[in-house]
Amino acid sequence: MNLALLFDGMLVVLILAVAVWTVTVRDSFAAGIGYAVYGLLLALAWVRLAAVDAALTEAAIGGGLTSVLMIRATVRLRAGEAAARAATPGPLPRLLAALLGGSVAAGLALVVLALPDPAPTLAPQVAEHIATTGLGNAVTAVLLSFRAIDTLLEAVVLIYALIAVWTLTPDRFWGGRPGPKYETDPNGMLAYLARLLPPIGIVVAVYVLWVGADLPGGKFQAGTLLAAMWLLAIMAGLTEAPPISRRWLRGVLVAGTVVFLAIGFAGVPLAGAFLAYPEGFAKPLIVAIEAASMLSIAFTLALLVLGPPERRDQA
C-alpha cells in the first residue's frame, strides 16, 4: 500500500511539474507539447482513480486532439509571439494573480480534506438497476440509460460548437473546405505512416466501441480514434477535408443525434417515457445509438480541429 502511495506521489509531482512548465514556458509551441504530455500523465492519474473510461477519454482528447489543435494554432500565430510576450504583466499583477490562484487552490484543498466520510455514492442504485440495461459497463449504463438525456444534449452541444466554428468562415469561403491543403511528399515518411495506420485504427475503434458495453470504452473514445485517423490521412495529403456544404457530411454529423432522438421518442409509446427502452431491447438499442454516435462524433471532432473553411471548393 505504501509503495502504491509512493508511486502516486511521484505521479502527482510529475503532473504538477509538467503543468507548471506548461504555464510558465516562454515558447507557446513548447506549451502545446507540454499539454500533450500533461494529458497523458493525467490519463495515468485516472487509471489510479479506477476510472479507466475517463482515462481513455483524457488520453485521446486531452493528450491528443486538444494538443493537435493548440500546436496548429501556435504555429499560425508564431509571428505575433514576440509582441504578445512583451505584454507580460509586471511583478505586482503577477503576485496578485498568484494570490488569487493560491487562495482558490487552498480553498479547494480544504474542501478535499473535509469531504464527508462515508462518502455519498450512487453506485448501489446503479448496481441495482444495471441488470435492466443488459450492459456490463456501469459508466456506459449511466451515459446511455440512467442519464441518457445528458448524453443526448452533449451530442447537440458538439454540433452547436461546430456550427459556431463554421460561422467564423469569411463570406468568400462559405461552403468551402476547412484547413489548408496539405502538400506532403507522397513517398515520404508521414504518408507512409498514414497509409498503414488508419485501417488498423478503424479496427481498434470498432473494438473500443463494441467492448464499451461491458468493458471500458465507448463511442467517445472510439469516435476520437477515428477522428485522429482521418486527420492523419488529411494532414499527410492522402485525402482532403470535404467542403462543408456537402449533404452527406451534414447527414453524418447529425446521424447520431437523429438516431438518439428517434429511439428516445419511440420510447414514449413503447416504454412509457422519453428515452426509456422497451424491456429486453435496451442493449441492442444502446449499441445502435452508440454506433451512429461514433460516426457523428468522429466527423464533428475532426472538423472542430480543422476549423472554419479557408479555401473554396475546387471540384
Binding site: 502527482v12 503543468a19 500565430l77 507580460t88 504583466p89 503577477r94 493560491g102 487552498a106 478535499v112
Partner: peptide, 18 residues
C-alpha cells in the same frame, strides 16, 4: 493535486498575455 491544478490554471489564465 486537482486543487493545485485549478489554482495554477487560474494564475496562467490571468498572467499569460497570449
Amino acid at each position: 493535486c486537482g486543487a493545485v491544478l485549478v489554482g495554477l490554471g487560474l494564475y496562467g489564465l490571468v498572467v499569460s498575455p497570449q
